[in-house]
């Protein structure tokens, strides 16, 4: 299973980015191979519109099954849902902490977008 966490860094110790569409990037952790992959989101981050849905496409292309982020808007949520990706909202400080909470089953599945678009 691949878990994508929104972050501005490239290691497990990196801080989580609470935004989804305009996060600097994603760390995709493969629980089977234990491989950590950095996925850049700079292009979407700077787009005039549609950052969330393109970011959702990016994580889908990276093969993620799970997204852990601070907040997710309605359009991005629709794409993630269509791609069969489960979204978890999390306020952890670092990527490692977020993955830890997920592993312990302490995160709740988001059943809908938890913010309006352009919330941040």
């Amino acid at each position: 299973m691949k878990i994508a966490v929104t972050t501005s860094g490239d290691s497990l110790a990196a801080p989580m980015d609470s935004r989804f569409g305009r996060a600097a990037g994603f760390l995709v952790y493969d629980t089977d191979t234990k491989v950590l992959q950095v996925v850049d989101n700079a292009q979407n981050l700077n787009s005039a519109q549609g950052a969330g849905i393109q970011a959702a496409q990016t994580v889908a292309e990276a093969g993620a099954n799970v997204v852990i982020t601070g907040h997710c808007g309605p359009k991005a949520f629709r794409v993630l849902q269509a791609a069969g990706i489960t979204v978890y909202n999390c306020e952890a400080a670092t990527v490692q902490e977020a993955l830890g909470l997920f592993g312990e089953g302490k995160l709740l599945t988001a059943s809908d977008a938890d913010v309006e678009g352009h919330w941040s």
């Binding site: 979407n44 005039a48 519109q49 549609g50 849905i53 496409q57 359009k75 794409v79």
Partner: peptide, 23 residues
């Protein structure tokens, strides 16, 4: 279509190309 759209209005998922009318 998705990669050429300048308004990020199209998302390509395998077997499902989604259009976002508001964009």
């Amino acid at each position: 279509c998705s990669s050429k759209c300048r308004f990020n209005a199209i998302v390509r998922l395998p077997g499902n190309t989604m259009i976002f009318p508001e964009l």
